[in-house]
Amino acid sequence: MGKGRPAVVAANKVSFDLAPGESLGLVGESGSGKTTVARMLVGLETPDSGSVEIAGRDRALNRRGAAGRKERAAEIQMVFQDPYGSLDRRLSVSQCLGQALKLQSPLRGDELQRAITELMNSVRLEPRLLSSFPHQLSGGQRQRLAIARALASSPKLLVLDEAVSALDVSVQAQILQVLNEIRAERGIALLFVSHDLAVIQEVSDKVMVMYRGDPIEQGIVSDVLQNPQHDYTKLLISSVPGLGWDPDEVMARRREFDLLQSVR
């Protein structure tokens, strides 16, 4: 996925492409298959058919051998929902980042320290936290550390699986800002998996709506939100609490939609 050259990422019926520095939101309710798509992309699950390509190279196969693993790690990384669970509780901030860095290149001593500091800066993690352990960090700091760790291999694509769902709104806003900076400065493409349309609107250029494993609508975020074509997208948008939101109306729509689904 060299600069300017669009990369194609596809998985069976789900297909989308993502240019460097671009951000795609993958939205849907629980069980819609959005997390499965994310896990297939990073190789945690193997698709039955189809392909994932980054910079024209096939990525779907769980490649063996140290070189293959390293190569994939340098292309695609992931940030998880649970910031505490996704960190090794025995490792301090510097150990966590140091190990991730050393997996990619044989850095040592001062060089390694500098790289660690740089990573911490890029996610705005205060230097005084260098020797803190995950249980001593706040939720927001943990998630910053998880993002920094993912950046250690300088990936081209970062998959964020509900990465801000467990955070408070103010912390969430800071993390989204950090992600936007990373995207602008490093040209990393983001794949944002979330159930929260408002969050996706904040960080994504494009959006794909999934329903029961099928991608039902995709396009530019503002187009899809303002002019949704599919009934489910309409239902989803009207379900989000906000001005003029009426739960009774949503319930009626849901009934109507389910009825239509069962007829088909």
Binding site: A173, L197, A198, L225, I237, S238, G242, L243, G244
Partner: peptide, 15 residues
């Protein structure tokens, strides 16, 4: 006000 400004709001709603 800070809290409210941090909340992402959905634009283009209410169809």
């Amino acid at each position: 006000r800070e809290l409210l400004s941090a909340v992402p709001s959905l634009k283009g709603q209410r169809l």
